[in-house]
Design a binder for these strands. Sequence first.
DNA 1: CCAACATACTCACCGAGTGAGTATAGGGTA
DNA 2: TACCCTATACTCACTCGGTGAGTATGTTGG
Lengths: 191, 191
Amino acid sequence: MLESQQRSSYTGALSPEYALLGFLALREAHGYGLHQQLVQELGQVWHVSLSQTYNILGRLERQGYISGSMMPQDKLPARRTYHLTQAGRRRFDQWLQSPSGCSVHAIRVEFSTRLYFALLLQPGYADELIDLQVKVVQGGLQRMRKALSCMPPEQTVNRLGLSLRIRQLTSVAEWLTECRTALGPAHDMER
Amino acid sequence: MLESQQRSSYTGALSPEYALLGFLALREAHGYGLHQQLVQELGQVWHVSLSQTYNILGRLERQGYISGSMMPQDKLPARRTYHLTQAGRRRFDQWLQSPSGCSVHAIRVEFSTRLYFALLLQPGYADELIDLQVKVVQGGLQRMRKALSCMPPEQTVNRLGLSLRIRQLTSVAEWLTECRTALGPAHDMER
DNA sequence: CCAACATACTCACCGAGTGAGTATAGGGTA
DNA sequence: TACCCTATACTCACTCGGTGAGTATGTTGG
């Protein structure tokens, strides 16, 4: 009964792990620095504490996507430098190709992150990424509008809840076109 | 640096625990039934699995906000019937009075839930609740707009991220006025 | 007669996220 | 010189969020 949503087996895409993989795709780094980078570059997108960053790095290493080794420094304490494994590279590349779901949160954090790395790694691909996402959003909007029209009127709060989701997704669609115009000029200069 | 957000000590307000407290404020009930109620009445607002419902009930009981006792049934297996304690009643009443933060998610789920119970328990209060929330949202919007104007232009993705948050919150504000008109007529009949 | 479905939970597990703690180095001040 | 604050660089223990599988029984449809 209207359980759409596309939850399925949770892929962890809504934690900043791909951002960390992305930074490591650019160059190897250690946890503390990665956290600083995350805050500076994507602080408006993700809000992650230092220990959370280490948690994710630990998990990514356990799962074999990154691998780290202690690098002693003179004066300052030794630090663990991570680099992407082949599996990690594959995972990141694959993620970069696939559009986000059509939940507002997914788009705000995951799509923005994807856009960030697309601009850095293959700027010509950004437009395509946005178009792809627009299509997903449009599809989601249709489904939601249909669901709303099918909902009994006495479900006041449920109707309002869905109505808000529709408004939110509509403004996401508008924002996506804003993205295109915001990136358009710089993008033209690239090619 | 722009850590606004009002995180502070996390109050658990973004899990459906208050919805469960609310249902129990109306009448005592057992886990399975509470879950059904949650899905039927607020399914567009919260997406909670059965086991998650039991998790939360377990925690609420450990924390002393609800208390349950096994009620044997003939034929069907015995079930644990919960009722609100005084502490739970206080907690729920206090929550019902206080506006949500100005994050989109907080409003979508928490405010909607508050509105749902306000309409059931003290319908005359709903308008006031909405007005209160509008003020919070307007304040948040101002802070975000200011933050955006202060952000360096080279922070493209961060700027876009904040811009989306602003769009989202703007559409929340519009939705709140939709709430008022949607509830207005029924509401007039109440007084 | 059997399968599917509804009732009513329980359990084990992993990821999300926080806060406190550890240790060292460098810079400023009283 | 003693002291404190900040920055670097983590580690640990803990709670909450959330899922999926499993258990056990009764009812209903083919």
